[in-house]
Computed example of a mutant assay.
Amino acid sequence: MARLKVTVKAEKLPLQKPFRISGYVFDAFEVVLVTLSDGEYRGRGEGGGVYYLGDNASAMLKVLDNAVTLIAEYPSREELRHMLPPGGARNAVDCALWELEAARIGIPVWRLAGKSAPRPLRTTFTIGADEPGAMGETARCYTQASNIKIKLTGELDLDLARVEAVRAARPDVWIGVDGNQGFQEKELDALIAGLQAQRVALLEQPLARGREADLDGLRSPIPIAGDESILSLDDVEGAVGRFDVINIKLDKCGGLTEGLMMAQEARRLGLQVMVGNMGGSSLAMAPSFVLGQECDVVDLDGPIFLARDRHPGVAYSGGKIWAGAEVWGGAST
Score class of each variant (00 low, 15 high):
206 P>M: 01
186 K>W: 10
238 G>F: 02
82 H>A: 12
284 A>G: 09
19 F>Q: 02
247 N>M: 03
223 P>E: 04
216 D>K: 12
1 M>A: 10
321 I>M: 09
192 I>F: 00
229 S>L: 11
29 F>K: 15
172 D>N: 10
321 I>E: 06
3 R>H: 08
39 G>D: 10
196 Q>D: 13
59 A>L: 07
327 V>H: 05
217 G>A: 09
106 G>P: 09
213 A>F: 12
215 L>R: 00
15 L>S: 12
298 V>W: 08
136 G>V: 04
216 D>F: 14
126 T>S: 14
58 S>K: 15
169 A>N: 12
186 K>C: 13
225 A>Q: 04
131 E>T: 14
141 C>H: 15
318 G>F: 04
151 K>R: 03
196 Q>K: 15
216 D>S: 13
234 D>H: 15
123 T>C: 11
57 A>E: 14
49 G>K: 13
226 G>V: 04
285 M>A: 07
304 I>H: 11
188 L>N: 02
216 D>H: 13
103 A>I: 01
100 L>P: 06
188 L>Q: 01
84 L>K: 02
214 D>A: 10
317 S>P: 00
193 A>I: 13
260 L>C: 08
309 D>N: 12
206 P>L: 06
6 V>T: 07
192 I>V: 09
262 M>C: 11
227 D>Q: 00
283 L>P: 03
236 V>N: 12
35 T>K: 12
195 L>N: 07
265 E>K: 15
303 P>Y: 13
246 I>N: 07
309 D>H: 09
151 K>P: 15
1 M>S: 14
144 Q>I: 01
113 A>N: 05
74 Y>N: 15
148 I>D: 05
173 V>R: 00
179 G>M: 03
174 W>K: 02
45 G>E: 07
48 G>K: 07
325 A>Y: 01
82 H>T: 11
143 T>L: 11
9 K>V: 06
149 K>G: 11
198 Q>V: 05
39 G>W: 05
205 Q>P: 14
245 V>G: 06
52 Y>E: 10
136 G>H: 02
316 Y>N: 08
2 A>L: 12
89 A>R: 00
294 E>K: 13
88 G>Q: 10
102 A>L: 03
188 L>C: 07
188 L>F: 04
310 R>E: 07
276 G>Y: 13
328 W>Y: 08
4 L>N: 05
249 K>L: 04
160 L>S: 04
121 L>S: 07
195 L>D: 12
329 G>H: 12
219 R>P: 04
305 F>H: 14
119 R>H: 11
149 K>I: 01
273 V>K: 05
162 R>K: 09
181 Q>V: 02
47 G>A: 10
266 A>E: 06
267 R>G: 15
46 E>L: 04
93 V>W: 00
92 A>H: 09
86 P>E: 11
291 L>P: 07
303 P>R: 14
270 G>Y: 05
329 G>Q: 13
28 A>F: 14
139 A>K: 06
18 P>N: 03
208 A>N: 01
295 C>E: 05
118 P>K: 02
134 A>C: 10
144 Q>R: 09
48 G>I: 08
48 G>R: 02
174 W>I: 02
234 D>A: 15
84 L>D: 02
180 N>H: 01
